[in-house]
Design a protein around this nucleic acid. Structure first.
Lengths: 340, 340
DNA sequence: CTGAAAGCGCTTACAG
DNA sequence: CTGAAAGCGCTTACAG
């Protein structure tokens, strides 16, 4: 285990003062060419790498950003995290990834840790609508970008999908195919995206003169097993009470719904239609072929990191918040069909 | 934007010296109860949170670990990263996630950044067999855990699967089902896991008196499109030269292979068998139902983070490296069947 | 163009 | 039990 090489070692070897080394490190304009070379040689000889921690303490920049997601094992988050991380790395930032398991206590703890570690900014992909920790970050001047979420309060940057419209597209697609009894499987509506998707479903039905039926709407624990069991319970209903189609608030849950339908012995889409939300990669596979609402996940991810970095580096004025709403697109594959 | 509250502010308000505040912060034993309370009150009043950066500079501990993966969008990495991150968070560590896109230059850059940011340790899930940057980390005394990988050099901690045995299980399963012409789709063999899986395939065939055929082995770019195209090319061969089964070095690629088979109009498993590697979550879905070699991903992930933290915190002696090899298990689903 | 000094926000021996 | 002093490894005015 070698002793750590510091800027002092470099200075001594180059025969200059330690601040001078700092100046060549930071490409200060007024350094004589010859001393620049002496210093550079000493750096190379010693294999010196400046310590970011020490630098951060004085510059107040860590070149680290936080990314908070609800569940990195959900492909939607993994696929977008990839885009965010690559883009950040390309701009010289590292990202601390936090997985909250959709739990409030974990979320709160994480924000504290990220503040303590002085991240330069944070992208939050999983936050409940009401949240006051955002305020802590804002007061400390840490830029925030909400991604796929929105808040009840104002003055926070966000990029989201027009979720309401997304659901309406799904509803209208099914109605066009002759469906009248359409079930809806939601994620927790404390999250704005899930709330808005649910709203869109209700609006879409009403617009076509269909009264939403409480028994056909699920909002509860949204792990695979719970979704599977709920779906099975809906299917055992009398035929005239059984839905003919499902709209599901994300693809991951939609796959669980499809699993239940298949286990129950019904065919998709002949007997039952399913529409998801997110358009994760696997949904395009011919073995899934899920009809789904795309939320332009890559675009959303890249915009959020680019804007965040732009704010961090002072290239975007912060006196006005960034609010971007992307257009949803219905991608029709083979899990949606005409009602019999 | 509030000014940052420091330990000095707390000291002044509590009417004690600044080191005394530090002592109550760190739960030093010899602090009078009454001053402890005074200080705690000042901390609460001001909402003070100690700055980790400053602390790290002196303690030489950042409570941050690095996790390097090849592609976080591959569910295998996402699902295991989740386990690692959750466990780390539970022990008071944050994780910087690095995605290398399997590129050497990105890998090298990342290691430098992680060193500069003084991570307490690093878990590497994607590293080529020959690599000398490991040495840099070791010389700096930064603990390393290789995860799902191994190195040609000695003296590095790793947890891996018996990959050779895994492939042999797959080969023998197909041979038992009557297959003789078995194709193999590999990832880049600079990675030990892929090299060992390929070795197992070759060994398995030879053990049963079958000579491996070069035309049935693919090693090249391993994105979806390339795998799809290669598979299609194999399928157009004359019937007697066409393989009857595929063993694929990971599930993600296996799904691409299945896609090609389906597009070509063949049925799985009636006309063609497919076996993957990893047992990612989606493989268990009835719509995929992939026969695959499980590498106990959750166990592997949790062991690697637990051991790493144990080393970081000095609970494990570092004079001997940790070498753990897990047993593979063949999970037979519905993509493997008897040859016609 | 270069260096002496102060400071970022903490911890840690060391005295007392 | 508490505080004065030094130090972690850098950057940044400020003089010269």
């Amino acid at each position: 285990m070698k002793p750590k090489i510091t800027i002092y070692d470099v200075a001594k070897r180059a025969g200059v003062s330690q601040p001078t080394v700092s100046k060549v490190l930071n490409h200060y304009p007024h350094v004589k060419q010859s001393t620049k070379e002496k210093v550079q040689k000493a750096i190379d000889d010693l294999g010196f790498e400046p310590d970011f921690l020490a630098r951060s303490l004085v510059t107040n920049k860590t070149r680290t950003i936080g990314l908070i997601v609800g569940d990195i094992a959900n492909p939607f988050y993994a696929e977008t995290a990839k885009v965010i991380i690559k883009e950040a790395q390309g701009s010289g930032y590292e990202v601390i990834l936090v997985d909250t398991d959709y739990r409030r206590d974990f979320f709160e703890q994480s924000v504290k840790s990220l503040i303590a570690k002085r991240v330069d900014g944070v992208i939050i992909a999983s936050i409940t609508r009401k949240n006051d920790q955002i305020k802590d970050l804002q007061e400390l001047g840490i830029p925030i970008m909400l991604y796929n979420r929105n808040l009840d309060s104002k003055s926070v940057n966000y990029i989201e999908l027009d979720n309401e419209k997304g659901s309406m597209l799904a509803v209208e697609h099914l109605i066009t195919l002759g469906h009248k009894r359409i079930a809806y499987i939601s994620g927790p509506i404390q999250y704005s995206s899930f709330q808005n998707r649910l709203n869109g479903y209700l609006l879409g039905l009403r617009k076509h003169g269909i009264d939403p039926h409480q028994d056909l709407i699920y909002e509860g624990p949204f792990d695979y097993e719970n979704i599977l069991q709920y779906t099975l319970r809906l299917l055992v209903a009398d035929l005239h009470e059984r839905p003919t189609g499902f709209i599901v608030a994300n693809d991951q849950m939609a796959i669980a719904v499809m699993d239940a339908i298949k286990r129950f012995g019904l065919r998709i889409p002949e007997d039952m239609s399913v529409i998801g939300f997110d358009n994760i990669d696997i949904s395009a596979s011919p073995f899934i072929g899920l009809t789904t609402v795309s939320q332009q996940k890559k675009r959303m991810a890249i915009l959020s990191i680019q804007h965040l970095i732009s704010i961090i580096e002072g290239k975007t004025a912060i006196d006005q918040s960034i609010r971007i709403t992307l257009e949803p697109e219905l991608i029709i594959r083979k899990t949606s069909g005409s009602v019999k």
